[in-house]
């Protein structure tokens, strides 16, 4: 596998996790700083099952996904009724807690030294197919009443309750979807890298997963994907020298800039579609010729 294929595979895997977070943070409006922890559960579960029980990797990845979802649900039950900022603090603690547990179960997980000789088998094509399926799934989800109700929860909780939406249920649903996709991404990562260390899943990773959602536009699936494709390769590309340290500074700067100048994210809640693109270009050219853009050029 060439260097570039490798980067593409990793970007695809992390994008699956980012898609999960877009449902939770982008569409339901709940911020999490701990989803790398759910990736870790998926990754370690899948790796250990395939090492010790010689499970085929698709079975072990599935088990990892399920366990991440289960633990995510158990954590959510007592915490989803908290106010959003408290929820964020809880996820921060849970994410770090999961990592520390893995680090200290050295007999099982290899501790800080890491877990090696994990069976491989994840290819770029496999990742690509799963990533596309995840996008299709979320797209379909968003145009059902379940997706719409999640968005209503983000927009205005009391109004959502007043049209009969059980807020708790839809927050839980968003949490389940996000944990499942993060667990899935973790499992894929394990069988792609063939090794795991707890530092792969620290708080910085959680931040890296959520930043594309914020930058791309909360409520824009295409915006999140575009931001993900731009930002996710950076850790690999900036691997050498002091670039690595500067990366988080740049991220921080980007977030501050976006929050200051475009608080709804690059795409806001607009989707990048051919139709919107045409309208935007038409409006752009008309404006440049000094004509009124017919009131339609204001999209995107």
């Amino acid at each position: 596998m060439s260097y570039w294929t490798g980067i593409a595979t990793q970007v695809g895997i992390y994008l699956i996790a980012v898609l999960g977070l877009s449902v939770l943070c982008g569409f339901t409006g709940m911020f999490s700083m701990g989803h790398a922890g759910f990736m870790a559960i998926g990754a370690y579960t899948s790796a250990l099952l395939s090492i010790h029980l010689s499970m085929p990797i698709w079975v072990s990845v599935l088990c990892g996904t399920l366990l991440a979802t289960l633990i995510g649900t158990l954590v959510s039950l007592p915490t989803l009724k908290l106010r959003d900022d408290y929820f964020l603090i809880v996820t921060l603690g849970v994410g770090e807690g999961i990592r520390l547990v893995i680090q200290n179960l050295a007999d099982l997980t290899g501790g800080a030294r890491g877990l090696t000789s994990i069976p491989g088998g994840v290819t770029i094509w496999g990742v690509l197919v799963i990533a596309v399926l995840a996008v299709v799934f979320i797209k379909l989800f968003l145009s059902t009443k379940f997706g719409r109700n999640c968005i209503a929860v983000r927009e205005e909780e009391l109004a959502a309750k007043s049209v009969g939406i059980n807020i708790f249920r839809y927050k839980l649903l968003a949490m389940v979807i996000s944990c499942a996709l993060c667990g899935l991404a973790g499992g894929l990562l394990a069988h792609y890298l063939n090794y795991l260390t707890p530092t792969l899943f620290n708080m910085t990773k959680s931040e890296e997963l959520i930043i594309p959602v914020i930058l791309g536009g909360r409520g824009s699936l295409t915006g999140t994907i575009v931001a993900g494709l731009l930002l996710l390769p950076l850790p690999e590309l900036l691997r050498f020298g002091s670039a690595q340290e500067w990366r988080m500074v740049i991220y921080g700067l980007l977030v501050v800039l976006v929050i200051t100048f475009r608080p709804s994210g690059l795409m806001g809640n607009k989707e990048l579609t051919l139709q919107n693109l045409k309208k935007f270009l038409a409006g752009f050219f008309l404006k440049n010729r000094g004509q009124a853009p017919d009131g339609k050029g204001d999209s995107v």
Binding site: I151, A152, E155, E156, L158, A159, A160, K161, S162, V163, G164, I165, N166, I167, G219, S264, N269
Partner: peptide
């Protein structure tokens, strides 16, 4: 009873300080 259950039973309201899903 919780708000969403009361709504599901058939009581709907509007708000003095408007609460629309503003971004939609």
């Amino acid at each position: 009873k919780p708000t969403h259950e009361i709504s599901q039973m058939g009581i709907a309201r509007t708000f003095q300080n408007i609460r629309l899903f503003g971004d939609l």
